[in-house]
Every structure is written in structure tokens, then in C-alpha cells.
């Protein structure tokens, strides 16, 4: 739920930047006038936040978590440097940095492998999950046949399937991607079905009286309406895809960050372990931010993403 907090902070910042209190979205009740007339000079739209204001908003939402992180980092440095814990267990940030730079070319190669597996798994999970969601939302038969299985399949610990996948598909790319797909698929289906089902029935009635076929209704009404749900599911899915890829590498691989992690573990190479962990987290963070950006571009209109500005009251 940290991202929600981030949004709220961002929204408040954006609102203060435009000089409007965030809470003034609806001043209904006593307000009765409807025709207020277009706000002067803006053609009826609030001014779009400028780049500078956006930067301020981002900075405002980031400084608090950044401060906490800095404090944790300082604590780590202090503990490691004073050797309260031996360095072969907890290396100093300096040692991790040295390992990272010295073995950079190797680490970068493994990072790319894991990144590739993750992205491939995520994209496949998103495509398959959306297709399944559409099938479930549109067909009563498929809803009854598929949905219980999808829900039940979630009970199977997918990580436990990993050895089986290695037996079936060998040590290459395939088992990792499959595992990533299996893990990331579920949140996409659930959010997709919830999104597609959340369409206002009156809108569907309306579409029927407009004589539109199912494809047009899907494209113009149901799919855009499902996007906010779907994007939330995709954000969960992308972080899970990393888990899938790494676990797949644990079980049997000759490259990738999961493989490096096992190697470093066997050698008691704590600095390499830490460097590896940092790179894994970086993959997750970067992909998450990319999905966030996609969300901001796709659904700027949604309640979770807008500053509270209304043009007319009541």
C-alpha cells in the first residue's frame, strides 16, 4: 500500500502547486448553480501541470521514503564498518560496491538474462491473463468452467512446480519463463475479470440501444472501463514475474541472477550476495515504475490519479 501513500502525497503536492486544496473536489450540498461559465482563458480545463510543478510533486512524494532509506543505509554502514557483525556475514557498502564494479560485466550479463526471462514471462502472463479474463467475463459457460479452476490453481504452490518444469523443459529459458507466467497470471486474470465486470449495466443497455456490436462495446466501453483494475493487477504481476524467474533459476540454471545467488551462497561470498540482491531488486523496481508510467499515460482520468479540481459545483 506504499504506492497509495505515494499517490496521495503526489496528489496533494500537485494540488498545492496549482493553488487548490486537495479536498475541495466536490463542494456539493448547498451549491445549486450549474452554469458557472468557462473559467477565463483556459477553455474550460484546469491548467495542465507544468514540468517544473511535476518535478516538485515527485520530489515532495519521494523525500520521506528517501530519508528512511538513507537512515537504514547509514545503520547498515555503521554496523558493518564497526564489525558488530563479521564482514563475511554483513559486508560494508564499500565492499559491495567494489564487487559490483569489479565483476560488472559478468553481473550485467546475468542481470540481462533474468530481465529477459522476467519481461517475457510478464508479457505472456499479461496477454494470456487478459485473454482468459475476457473469456470468463463474456462467456457464462467459460466462467463456470474456468474460473473455479483458475482460483483453485492458485492454491498449488507454484514454486514447488519448478523442479518438475526443469525435468520437462531442461535448464534453458523455457522453465523460467513458464514459472514467471504461472505466478504472474493470477493477478492479471482476477483484476481483468473484476474490471470487465465493473461496467455500469446502464452503459451496456445504452450500448444496446446504440445498435453497437459486442466488439465496439468492448473497445469503447468495457475495456477502457476495466483498465484501472487491470493496471493494478499488472503492477502486482510484474513484481511476481521477477520472483518466478529467479526461483526458476534457483532450481536449475547456468546463468541469471538466481544462479549467481546460489553460487555466491556456496562460496560464502557476502558482498556478491548483496550485489546480486540489489540488482534483483533493481529489476523489480524498474519494471514496476515502467508499469506505473504506462498507467499514468493510459488512465490519467481515473480517480486514483487526478487532482481534485471540479469546474462546476453541485
Amino acid at each position: 500500500m506504499t504506492e497509495n501513500a505515494l499517490h496521495t502525497a503526489g496528489r496533494q503536492a500537485a494540488a498545492t502547486a496549482t493553488g487548490t486544496p486537495a479536498g475541495s473536489a466536490s463542494t456539493s450540498g448547498a451549491g445549486t448553480s450549474t452554469v458557472v461559465g468557462p473559467p477565463p482563458g483556459t477553455g474550460g480545463r484546469p491548467p495542465r501541470p507544468t514540468l517544473g510543478r511535476r518535478a516538485v510533486a515527485v520530489a515532495d512524494s519521494l523525500w520521506r521514503p528517501a530519508l528512511v532509506l538513507a537512515a537504514l543505509f547509514a545503520a547498515w554502514w555503521f554496523v558493518a564498518a564497526q564489525e558488530y557483525v563479521p564482514n563475511y556475514l554483513v559486508p560494508t557498502p564499500g565492499q559491495v560496491w567494489t564487487t559490483m564494479t569489479e565483476q560488472w560485466s559478468e553481473l550485467a550479463r546475468h542481470t540481462l538474462v533474468t530481465l529477459y526471462e522476467t519481461v517475457l514471462g510478464f508479457v505472456l502472463a499479461a496477454a494470456l491473463g487478459l485473454a482468459a479474463a475476457v473469456a470468463i467475463a463474456y462467456s457464462r459457460t467459460l466462467d463456470k468452467a474456468l474460473y473455479p479452476i483458475v482460483l483453485f490453481a492458485q492454491v498449488i504452490p507454484k514454486i514447488a512446480i519448478a523442479p518438475l518444469l526443469v525435468v520437462w523443459f531442461g535448464l534453458g529459458l523455457t522453465p523460467k519463463v513458464i514459472l514467471a507466467v504461472l505466478i504472474a497470471f493470477f493477478p492479471v486474470v482476477i483484476s481483468g475479470v473484476a474490471g470487465l465486470r465493473s461496467t455500469d449495466p446502464e452503459l451496456l443497455d445504452l450500448a444496446a440501444t446504440m445498435g453497437a456490436g459486442p466488439w465496439r462495446t468492448f473497445r469503447k466501453i468495457r475495456f477502457p472501463n476495466a483498465l484501472p483494475h487491470l493496471m493494478a493487477g499488472l503492477k502486482v504481476a510484474v513484481t511476481l514475474a521477477v520472483v518466478g524467474a529467479v526461483v526458476g533459476e534457483f532450481v536449475g540454471a547456468s546463468e541469471g541472477l538466481g544462479y549467481v545467488l546460489l553460487l555466491a551462497n556456496g562460496n560464502l561470498d557476502a558482498p556478491l550476495l548483496f550485489a546480486d540482491l540489489i540488482l534483483m531488486s533493481a529489476i523489480g523496481i524498474v519494471l514496476f515504475v515502467l508499469v506505473e508510467i504506462a498507467e499514468a499515460l493510459l488512465i490519467p482520468w481515473h480517480a486514483s490519479r487526478r487532482a481534485g479540481v471540479s469546474l462546476t459545483t453541485s
Binding site: T34, G44, R45, W301, S310, L311, T312, T313
Partner: peptide, 18 residues
């Protein structure tokens, strides 16, 4: 219907009457 000036306004920016 007197919507001139609000052509681009999103529904949440409009009052119930609008």
C-alpha cells in the same frame, strides 16, 4: 444546452446538472 466552454471537461469535473 449551454455546455459551451465545457466541451473537453471530464465528467468528474462537471456538476450533476451539467
Amino acid at each position: 444546452t449551454g455546455l459551451t466552454g465545457f466541451e473537453k471537461a471530464l465528467p468528474h469535473e462537471l456538476s450533476g446538472g451539467m
